[in-house]
Design a binder for these strands. Structure first.
Length: 425
RNA sequence: GGAGAGGUCGCAUAGUGGUCUAGUGCGCCGCACUCGAAAUGCGGUGUGGGGCAACUCACCGAGGGUUCGAAUCCCUCCCUCUCCGCCA
């Protein structure tokens, strides 16, 4: 959601920002039209309502003075006026609904520093860390997983469906170790507050983060109007929905950890082997609520916090600055972390660190007050994975593979798993 | 799941169809008194829309309905508490 006043007063600026993302800027004109309709309707309705209210009040006084006849006359007049209200009210409601639908559909504007571009090829590599491990014909994690008995995709498909995985034996232990390790890392080392959220949320929460109404088909829905979360970002961001935070408490840094559920509709086929794209996975999500003036500095440190996990695990990765065409509708500026997975032979997206500025804060109505007595302002909200487990699993297993078929584990992980390497069963 | 009680401007509470422009207490802010503080007194103290502003409109859990008029009456839903049932 954007600032209405900005759209009204600087429509050209908004159109330009939307165009930079390669999205349709005519939404601005549709919005302005609906906005005028709504405000005009509202004015007419309010004037009529005020008239009726005035007469009603006088009726009250006449009744008090026992002037029954005059009161009855006034009643008839008020009724005649009042009968016109439903039509006007209906028009206002229709216009308001149209405006709100457009507002929820509005993309966010890119930050000036976000590089222009049409697709992922135009993303900019801003830095790399470490180097690719020297391996002769490395195996992919799905081969290693089978040989070491780490996970079972066929049985996952049997008990749930295609795209569900069962972690088994040391694989289950590794998955659990990774989860624990990352939560500890982000809370104890990087100072985030630990959050263990519900995985079922209501519609209002998904509208707050921008997943609805646009991306309904990506979500699993259950009865009672609840949805399985696609990321802990949803419940964690919505912790403060409709609240006013104390400016002195900002920046609030939260690390949510949860299972995530994605239908991945239309994603079948490409890039889906092994653990690369599954319907249920675990992830640690970092979320920050900041003052507007700090949000870009906080984006840098958030990205660094996500990177620090990969560094601690000694995994080669690179950081991309997403271009305007690849950043998505919601973000202003976004860094993707891509970890090198030698067996897959590709960099895998493992975290997207995004500054949404006030976009989500407006949708979820999350504000802060700088000092007592001052007007509340919208916070800036940022988030990023820190990190997603399955692709990290892939990178670790493939990077640590040895000629003898075993997998050497990163040192930092050994206390969590209680072994220094995984061996064939 | 069943029965009952509730949801009012930070907190607590009053308000059972027009005098509600929602009262009062606490908290908080300002001022006065004081060497300073406490106590006391006076004033202020919610959110959103519109307006440069004085100001104005809306909001009593949410949404409908009845009525000239709803915090108040009716309906649906959400949430909280108590008891019962079920259950990891």
């Amino acid at each position: 959601m954007l600032d209405r006043a900005l759209i009204r007063t600087q429509p050209d600026l908004v159109r330009a920002g939307i165009s930079r993302k390669g999205l349709d800027p005519t939404i601005v004109d549709r919005f302005l039209e609906a906005d005028v309709d709504w405000r005009n309707g509202e004015t007419v309705f309010q004037e009529k309502k005020a008239e009726v209210n005035a007469i009603s009040k006088s009726i009250g006084q006449l009744m008090g003075q026992k002037k029954i006849e005059e009161a009855n006359e006034a009643k008839a007049a008020a009724k005649a006026l009042s009968d016109q209200l439903p039509v006007l009210e209906d028009a206002v409601r229709t216009a308001e609904a149209r405006l709100l639908a457009l507002e929820l559909d509005f993309p966010n504007l890119p930050h000036d520093s976000t590089p222009d571009g049409r697709s992922e090829e135009d993303n900019v590599v801003v830095r790399e860390w470490g180097q690719k491990p020297d391996l002769e014909s490395p195996k992919a994690h799905w081969e290693l997983g089978e040989a070491l008995g780490l996970f079972d995709l066929p049985r996952g498909a049997k008990i749930s469906g295609s795209g569900f995985v069962v972690y088994t034996g040391w694989g289950a232990r590794l998955q659990r170790a990774l989860f624990n390790y990352m939560v500890d890392h982000q809370t104890l080392r990087n100072g985030y507050r630990e959050i263990y959220p519900p995985v079922l949320v209501n519609r209002a929460s998904l509208i707050g983060t921008g997943n609805l109404p646009k991306f309904e088909e990506d979500l699993y829905k259950v009865d009672d109007d609840l949805y399985l979360i696609p990321t802990a970002e949803v419940p964690v961001t919505n912790l403060y929905r409709d609240e006013i935070l104390d400016g002195a408490d900002l920046t609030v840094k939260l690390a949510g950890f949860s299972s995530c559920f994605r239908r991945e509709a239309g994603a079948a086929g490409k890039d889906t082997r092994g653990l690369l794209r599954i319907h249920q996975f675990d992830k640690v999500e970092l979320v920050k609520f900041t003052k507007p003036e700090n949000s870009y500095a906080e984006l840098e440190s958030l990205t660094a916090d996500a990177e620090s996990v990969l560094q601690a695990l000694g995994l080669h990765y690179r950081v991309l600055e997403l271009c305007t065409g690849d950043i998505g509708a919601k973000g202003c500026k976004c860094y993707d972390l891509e970890v090198w997975s030698p067996g897959v032979g590709r960099y895998l997206e493992i975290s997207s660190c995004t500054n949404f500025e006030a976009y989500q804060a407006r949708r979820a109505n999350i504000r802060f007050r700088r000092a007592a007595g001052e007007k509340p302002e919208f916070v800036h909200i940022l988030n990023g994975s820190g990190l997603a487990v399955p692709r990290l699993f892939s990178a670790i297993v493939e990077s640590g593979q040895q000629p003898d078929g075993s997998v050497v584990l990163p040192e930092a992980l050994r206390p969590y798993i209680g072994a220094d390497r995984l061996r064939p069963a």
